[in-house]
């Protein structure tokens, strides 16, 4: 396959960026999207240029690093996949593909397609934990978890923290990410002691990072590579409002 790529290039966080047009040939339809960019970078380096910077790590859909927006769609056109799991057979030979970084004030561009997602780390630090007793390992089945709760926690825990929800959200809100964490921990008995404080402090941190406000447009759910449900957001709103009305401390 031969493709025309329009890619956002920005030398550093402070520098201005712009789109550059590249053509890349010899692309196999079995390649992943990231391998296609590897191929482009090889070509750029051989021509003496600066390769396109992009985030990636596991290349198997579990780490959440491969952030990019492809033709306006977060992680490209296939539902429920990360960019590393996207194959070139999803594109037509000769296609023109626009590749941009995630866009959000809270996710500043570091270079080209790589953005800084430490705002998520701050949200996790604010409440993404449980307190547990130290010492010898607890007995595996000492705390019983109803099947429905375990399923709900497991579904929410599928979140890989990629930030695709923020990138897809018309308001650049981080509600789906934060709600996935709040729901994951808040659905389990082990997460109960901090449940209300967790919702308060994680939401406060989310707000202070400069993300937008949720208007329930559900673009996040539609774009999420792990198909996290917006029902987690209803759950977080419930926990947050309950804590807020009770006057709990974050």
């Amino acid at each position: 396959m031969k493709l025309t790529l329009q890619i956002w290039r920005q030398p550093s966080a402070e520098a201005d960026g712009n789109f550059e047009i590249y053509t890349v040939g010899g692309v196999s339809e079995d390649m992943s999207f990231l391998e296609m960019i590897d191929q482009l970078n090889r070509q750029i380096v051989l021509d003496g240029g600066e390769p396109v910077a992009f985030d990636h790590d596991c290349r198997e859909g579990i780490c959440g690093m491969c952030s990019m927006v492809i033709n306006g769609e977060v992680h490209g056109p296939i539902k429920g996949t990360t960019t590393c799991q996207l194959h070139m057979r999803s594109f037509k030979d000769g296609a023109k593909i626009v590749i941009e970084p995630f866009r959000a004030k809270a996710f500043p561009v570091v270079k080209d397609l790589a953005v800084d997602r430490s705002a998520f780390d701050a949200i996790i630090t604010a409440g993404g934990f449980i307190t547990s007793r130290t010492g010898s390992a607890p007995d595996g089945n000492a705390i019983l978890v109803p099947k429905e709760d375990a399923d709900q926690a497991m579904d929410a825990a599928a979140c890989i923290g990629c930030g695709g929800c923020v990138a897809a959200c018309p308001n650049a809100a981080a509600m789906l990410f934060t709600a996935a964490k709040v729901t994951h921990l808040g659905s389990l008995p082990q997460g109960q002691p901090e449940r209300r404080a967790r919702a308060l402090s994680m939401v406060q941190e989310m707000d202070s990072q400069g993300f937008g406000n949720c208007t329930n447009e559900r673009e996040c759910e539609a774009a999420c590579p792990k198909e996290i449900s917006v029902m987690t957001i209803a759950q977080m709103n419930r926990d947050y409002l309950r804590a807020s009305i009770a006057g709990d401390e974050a």
Binding site: Q6, W8, F19, V69, N71, G72, E73, V74, V98, E100, R103, A104, K105, A106, A168, N171, A172, A173, G210, F211, G212, E219, A222, A223
Partner: peptide, 13 residues
């Protein structure tokens, strides 16, 4: 304000 730079290619999900 939460998205200072808009997307060049716009698509709904």
């Amino acid at each position: 304000a939460a998205r200072e730079v808009p997307y060049h290619a716009k698509a709904a999900h």
